[in-house]
Amino acid sequence: MPDIADFADPDYLLRGSVLQQEVYDLLRGLRITEVLAAYHPLLAGTVPLGIQVEGSDLDIICEVHDHVRFTAEARSYFGDREGFSAITRIVQGIVRTKINFVAGGWPVELFGQPRPTLRQNGYLHMVVEWRILNMLGAGFREAVIELKRGGMKTEPAFARLLHLEGDPYEALLNLGTLTPEELNSVCSKVYPYIY
């Protein structure tokens, strides 16, 4: 698994699993970092963490302030791809654009909102999940993957295994604010349940 500092540079995928190397080649082939450079694209989600399952998509988060331009540019580069769709809507007062298509057998989702990628929830979730996976190890990773294979989304899977209450997305964001010692304290409480 990459060092946390590596997530901003997709070259870490080259040092990863065979699947991560294939994803790197696919993203290079799509020229994601070049054609979307103005939006600071960043691969988030399950593939960087190595917890993807069949049907997982490639989540690419982007910082977008002009959603009409972003959609038009994405359409010009990827509009001929299978399943291309684009939708812009307002969620919790924030304009968001989701662009979906299929490339190399992978569902791809470009997600844009007017927030730097390193401050978007998708990235923040991935970072805290990375910290937890490193802390709890292979048994916990396999438990997450099993829940995902059963149809559960990533954040709810983490929340269930960690016995977090309330909204799983918010609960994980809250864990991301903890010091390493505090996070270790939370995680160590579930250790016996996982192993």
Rank of each mutant, 00 (worst) to 15 (best):
M152S: 12
L124V: 06
I99N: 05
G137Y: 04
L175A: 06
C187T: 11
I32K: 02
A5S: 15
G150L: 12
E109T: 10
I32F: 02
L161S: 09
Y123I: 03
A74W: 02
I61E: 05
G139V: 08
L58T: 03
E109P: 04
V47T: 12
Q92A: 15
I87E: 15
E109D: 12
R89A: 10
G150Y: 00
P2D: 07
T33E: 08
C62N: 08
V64L: 03
E54P: 01
Q113I: 04
L172F: 02
Q21Y: 05
L58D: 05
E34N: 01
D6R: 01
L175R: 06
R160P: 01
Y191C: 10
L13R: 03
C187P: 06
V47L: 08
A8T: 14
G166W: 01
V127W: 00
E63G: 04
E170F: 00
L175D: 03
A159H: 06
H40S: 11
D9W: 00
I4G: 10
H65R: 15
T46P: 02
P168N: 11
V35P: 01
T33N: 09
P2L: 10
R160G: 02
Y195H: 15
F140R: 09
V91P: 00
V53R: 06
G112C: 07
P107V: 01
F111Q: 04
Q92K: 15
Y12Q: 10
S76H: 07
I90D: 12
R160L: 14
S76R: 14
